[in-house]
């Protein structure tokens, strides 16, 4: 029985991770970090606090910038990143 969500951080410097399962009701990542429930498979979760205007890093590259403060564990997508 899975009690935590699988994820991948594609580069060491990334501040987001990608969720690898559909267990959206769970509230922890396998490394113990708390996350907001409801984030779908393939979507991103912040693994560090990202201040408004700061770069969002995935694959070790800047894929966008935070449009508001994003706390660790929060869903990162078009509503808070562009």
């Amino acid at each position: 029985m899975n009690t935590a969500r699988k994820f991948i951080r594609l580069a060491d410097r990334d501040n987001v991770a990608t969720l690898l399962d559909d267990l959206a009701h769970l509230e922890r990542l396998t490394d113990g970090m708390a996350l907001r429930p409801g984030i779908p498979f393939g979507h991103k979760v912040a693994v560090a606090d990202i201040a408004a205007g700061k770069p969002v890093l995935k694959y070790g590259v800047v894929i966008g910038h935070a449009t508001q403060d994003i706390p660790a564990g929060e869903h990162v997508h078009v509503h808070n990143c562009t």
Binding site: G42, H43, K58, Y59, I63, G64, C81
Partner: peptide, 15 residues
């Protein structure tokens, strides 16, 4: 599917 920006989409291949 969770892709937020064009550069993120492109990185899927460029990775």
């Amino acid at each position: 599917a969770g892709l937020t920006t064009l550069i993120e989409k492109s990185m899927g291949a460029i990775a």
